[in-house]
Simulated scan of single mutants.
Amino acid sequence: MRLPTWLAQHLAALRALLVFTVLLGIAYPLLMVAVGRLPGLDNRTGGSLVTVADTTVGSRLIGQAFTDADGNPVPRYFQSRPSAAGDGYDPTSTSASNLGPESVVDTLSDDPEAASASLLTEVCARSLAVGELEGVDGSRPYCTADGVGAVLAVFHRDGFTGPVTRVVSVNQTGTPFVATYEGVAVESARNGEDYRAMGGVITAIRGDAPAHPVVPADAVTASASGLDPHISPAYAELQVARIARERGLSRAEVESLVEEHTDGRALGFLGEPGVNVLELNLALDGK
């Protein structure tokens, strides 16, 4: 007996559903699990975990902070790059800050929950902190000496043109980083004021910082994932003197360890070399 067309179509769809469920929902996942158990791949599929004396201390693929209980860098260890993933290197909250190059004005408020720093101020503050830790010049262009974005709101008589009538240092409620701008005294900012909406032209001031800062870019910016386990060779080199001093090693010994734990470009030409911070710090502990 010939089945009705609508019933035949439904039965064909059901058969296709069952076949693809078996193939893609059962067989394919089991095949991938089996491939992941092959010698040479089993460690990677398990998260590339690093174990010391039967204790898992981290992963080669996920960065981590080397700080004390108060969040301060532990001087004996190489420091990782900043992370915007959760409270830092949280694999369940991988993310970037989503702040771009136009983020130069802080949100100032008496309420800590409402206040927020711009990307520029975050970079300035991090650079200053790294400079203090490593004993080098942490200054950067468009940053003030106290580590915030050097940004003014400039008010003109005719909107965007004409003589300057008022100037506000938008990221500072204290003493402005410059006293005058084009002959006009610079005011300190007040909490809750939106000087851009009031007609101020946002103007970043470069200052006299070197064009090529001593503190590398990856020391002051988070990666897109927030989980990058590597730092640049330049950032590692910046930390060598501190590590050698804290551990009583020669500079040559520490530099040799850095070189041993520097990964080259993928396939010889993709990306940039990177230093795996966890593996390097474990090698230091082994010394």
Rank of each mutant, 00 (worst) to 15 (best):
W6D: 13
T107P: 14
R251Y: 00
P82C: 08
E102D: 14
G88V: 05
D68E: 06
M1V: 07
D158R: 06
Y142W: 02
Q9I: 15
D263P: 01
W6Y: 09
A129L: 00
T180K: 08
E259G: 08
E237R: 15
P163T: 12
H156Y: 13
A222G: 08
L3P: 12
V214A: 06
L282G: 13
G286H: 06
H156V: 09
P91C: 04
T262Q: 02
S169W: 12
A114T: 14
P29E: 04
N281M: 00
D68H: 00
V151D: 10
G86P: 05
S188V: 09
S232Q: 07
S188N: 12
Y235Q: 11
D87Q: 15
G149E: 00
T56N: 14
R190E: 15
G226M: 03
R265D: 00
V170L: 08
P4K: 14
L11D: 08
A16Q: 08
S59Y: 00
P39C: 10
L278K: 00
L14C: 09
V170Q: 08
T173Y: 03
P75R: 04
T55Y: 13
G46P: 00
A69N: 11
R265W: 03
S48G: 04
L99Q: 08
Q239T: 04
I231Y: 10
R206E: 10
A125Y: 13
I231L: 12
L284V: 04
A27N: 06
A84H: 15
Q64E: 04
V148A: 09
G47R: 11
R15D: 07
A244K: 10
L11G: 06
G58K: 12
T5L: 14
G147H: 02
G268W: 04
Q239C: 05
H10A: 15
G271A: 09
G226A: 03
R15F: 01
L24C: 11
A244P: 04
E134Y: 11
